[in-house]
């Protein structure tokens, strides 16, 4: 028996919004420690890794490890049927070929359940090597989304250059060129407005804008985003989900000329 409850459907809706543009389907691996999903996009350029800890749920029960392959488009249709303040419970029997989403209104007067067929996706997890990143940047998630959106107008790719002084995002194309420089902040009132740079070595890396823009669909989940970079390895874009876990996107760099 598997049962996971969140007192508020908003978080689950936001999580799905953050992955459904990149992934058509995904396997949710459930164990007593929580729910994990790891999947590459269709082009195998990026990888999504979602971790939801069992202690972050309002109720969590997982008697046996369970892998549930889900069509994320179908899951999105079902979650659209939940009000934001509904309680959502995900339920499945051991070895079942369906999963049930139950939505309960706050006053308990409306209870709906939606059963969805599971898929056999046969997805195998890739091992992600432990990496000491040369640069780790924490910045407001909204600011990162804004920069990715703005620079995508100028080029298909963005160059991220990180030094001790700051981080610079650049794009150039037929229209011209664009540069956005962010300096590390000191003495900000609110932690979520801070820009913090931890640098061992400066890095310059080039990434495809369309993937960065897809990652920013996670912006509603978190005030801050963390970018981890080293030369010649994938960028990690991490959004923490308060009290529940995190979503990490890994993006392979572009091949330099």
């Amino acid at each position: 028996m598997f049962e996971a409850r969140l007192n508020n459907a908003t978080t689950l809706k936001k999580i799905l919004d953050a992955i459904k543009d990149l992934l058509n389907e995904g396997t949710f691996d459930c164990s007593d420690s929580g729910i994990q999903l790891q999947a590459m996009d269709n082009s195998h350029v990026s990888l999504v890794s979602l971790t939801l800890r069992s202690d972050g749920f309002d109720k969590f029960r997982c008697d046996r490890n369970l892998s549930m392959g889900m069509n994320l488009g179908s899951m999105a249709k079902i979650l659209k049927c939940a009000n934001n303040d509904d309680t959502v419970t995900i339920k499945a029997q051991d070895n079942a070929d369906t999963v049930t989403f139950m939505f309960e209104s706050q006053n308990q007067e409306k209870v709906s359940d939606y059963e969805m067929k599971l898929m056999n996706l046969d997805q195998e997890h890739l091992g992600i090597p432990e990496t000491d990143y040369s640069c780790v940047v924490r910045m407001p998630a909204m600011e990162f989304a804004r920069i990715c959106r703005d620079l995508a107008q100028f080029s298909e790719s963005v160059v991220i250059c990180c030094t001790k002084e700051g981080v610079k995002f650049s794009a150039s194309g037929d229209v011209g060129s664009a540069n956005v420089k962010l300096a590390q902040t000191f003495n900000v009132d609110k932690e979520e407005e801070a820009i913090v740079i931890e640098m061992q070595e400066p890095v310059v890396l080039t990434f495809a804008c369309r993937y960065l823009n897809a990652f920013t669909k996670a912006t509603p989940l978190s005030n801050q985003v963390q970018l981890s970079m080293s030369a010649d390895v994938p960028l990690v874009v991490e959004y923490r989900i308060a009290e529940l876990g995190h979503i990490r996107y890994y993006l392979a760099p572009k091949i330099e000329d």
Binding site: H44, V45, A208, A252, I255
Partner: peptide, 14 residues
């Protein structure tokens, strides 16, 4: 995608 590395080139297959 010829100017683009793929993500599974960097990670360890199962």
């Amino acid at each position: 995608l010829k100017d683009q590395f793929q993500i599974d080139q960097f990670f360890i297959p199962p």
